[in-house]
């Protein structure tokens, strides 16, 4: 298990929230609608615990967007919401409601773009902290239970997940979702080392 100090936590949260702010303004401009994004909580959890967290919070059916990251760190970045929340986010942002119960192909594509904007911001902030290059791949729409999304069965359970709670503010609604970065242990150690150097540099 990876422990991080209060100071480290505050620092990461601060940096991520700055980039969330710019992601929100990109989205706002695109849809001519007030969009607010913030990250109130961050945690480092083993893959299986992160998957369990989805299922516990009554979010057994999740959907969202994933994209691969490589370079200084490698793994997967995910933005997940309970299935019905994904539906309302897309439909509020597109401003037209299709009376069908699942996202159409084009709505899925729109969700991919929304996720892409948010995930790119998060990944760029992390690249900034690391002062190294991170290459991201194209977003993909995914759905499933926590275990399926995190492919708990097929992969290494010890992998740590950087677990960020995201508040998506839309039309006076606050929609809760999660951004998670599945990273291997070495990447994370490196991340924490860099973090400490920067915090020390600030004094």
């Amino acid at each position: 298990m990876l422990e991080i100090s209060e100071l480290q936590r505050d620092y990461i949260t601060e940096i991520l929230n700055i980039s969330m702010g710019s992601a929100a303004s990109v989205l706002s401009e695109m849809v001519s609608e007030e969009v607010a994004l913030s990250i109130p909580e961050i945690d480092f959890l083993p893959r299986s615990v992160a998957a369990g967290k989805f299922d516990q919070t009554n979010m057994s059916k999740m959907s969202g967007v994933t994209q691969g990251i490589s370079g200084a760190i490698y793994g997967d970045a995910l933005l997940m919401f309970p299935e019905e929340k994904t539906l309302s986010i897309v439909r509020i942002l597109l401003g037209e409601a299709v009376p069908v119960e699942s996202l159409t192909e084009m709505e899925q594509e729109a969700m991919c773009e929304i996720g892409n904007i948010i995930l790119n911001s998060v990944v760029s902030s992390i690249a900034d902290i690391l002062k190294k290059e991170i290459v991201s791949s194209l977003p993909r729409f995914i759905q499933g239970t926590g275990n399926e999304v995190f492919s708990v069965e097929s992969s290494n359970h010890d992998d740590l997940v950087m677990f960020l709670k995201v508040d998506f503010g839309l039309e006076s609604q606050s929609i809760n979702g999660y951004v998670t970065l599945i990273l291997n242990m070495d990447s994370l150690q490196d991340f924490i080392t860099q973090l400490d150097e920067q915090i020390n540099a600030i004094g």
């Binding site: 695109m30 849809v31 994209q67 370079g71 942002l93 597109l94 084009m106 709505e107 594509e109 729109a110 991919c112 773009e113 929304i114 892409n116 904007i117 790119n120 990944v123 760029s124 690249a127 290059e133 991170i134 290459v135 991201s136 791949s137 194209l138 977003p139």
Partner: peptide
């Protein structure tokens, strides 16, 4: 500059 891949969907653009 930042090596990010992006998607511009037809619905939002």
């Amino acid at each position: 500059d930042a090596h990010t891949a992006s998607l511009l969907s037809r619905s939002l653009n």
